[in-house]
Amino acid sequence: MTTPFGESTRGQAPRVLVVTFALDPTADYVLRELNARRIPFWRTDLADFPTRSTLSAELGADGRWRGTMHDTARGVNLSELRAVWWRKPTPFAFPDTMSGPEQAFAASQAKRAVSGVLGSLPGVLWVNRPERNADCTKPRQLAAAAEAGLHVPETLITSNPADVPPFAERCGGRIITKVLGGIVHTEANTRGQLYTRRVPPEQWNDPRIGLTAHLFQREITDKAYEVRVAVVNGRTFPVAIHAPDGAARLDWRTDSSSLRYSAALLPREVQQGIEAMMWRLDLVFAALDFIVDSRGTHYLVDVNPGGQWAWIDQTRDAITHALANLLEKGSTT
């Protein structure tokens, strides 16, 4: 086993595990920095298991799992692992000849084994623990933000269409709806995005609202700009996002090529609120979205526990170094 520089890794087995898909340029910035620092790491995807990677772990009398997880080129000694960066892995993959039930069984086994063994290793830094990401649902993150003292737009989650008109009236008649999960939707061999959209009065009591739960929020009508804040172990990296009039004004993701970025400073109370919210959500990293109104009030609208950040030039290098420092250190303290 050799490093990218052709050196033997004997005595310096990877202590950093990076779990992500084969195409992840955001992660690449940090991995390139780790290479430059000669910090051994192993990048793998859940989809590699069990066809291209292997887990072998035995429980010791002291309650510690010992063994390895590796592929043909690299791997980690479970006793030496110090940090796991959970990025954007794709699901476990099994032979096509397995039936559906067989694949479900295999996935259940793999999921519990890999996450269970890695997750029970003592003294390992997780950025973030996957279950914390899973727990960071929209209802929970908004509640945590409000509990932490951050401003959150008035929010309604309901499967009762009759709830919407009075809520909209309380919001001055201007409400939006956004999805509770990711914005990508596929069907009929097509792919589309579910961006934030306004809900006009004639749709307030649409019976199809009752077909599942939906989220509605007061529209921040006097939006001045938005702020994307990457948080790395308590350090914040804010950037103001300025969208031109048009669709991107409501949701900047609809026309990301039209955006302009500038430096931003967070008010002290927002900084404190972020710290408290991250603690409540037990997250080491997150990419946060704020809407700032004309009076300077910052409204927390989204917490992305594995969110993107490298496309913004202004903060890319600083975030890269902060994450590399964290993974190299293997500790938040």
Partner: peptide
């Protein structure tokens, strides 16, 4: 690496809300 969901990186989240 944009967060607009238009590229192949922005697949469908399973159990996670993430942009």
């Amino acid at each position: 690496t944009e967060s607009d969901g238009r590229d192949s990186i922005g697949g469908v989240d399973e159990d996670q809300n993430d942009d």
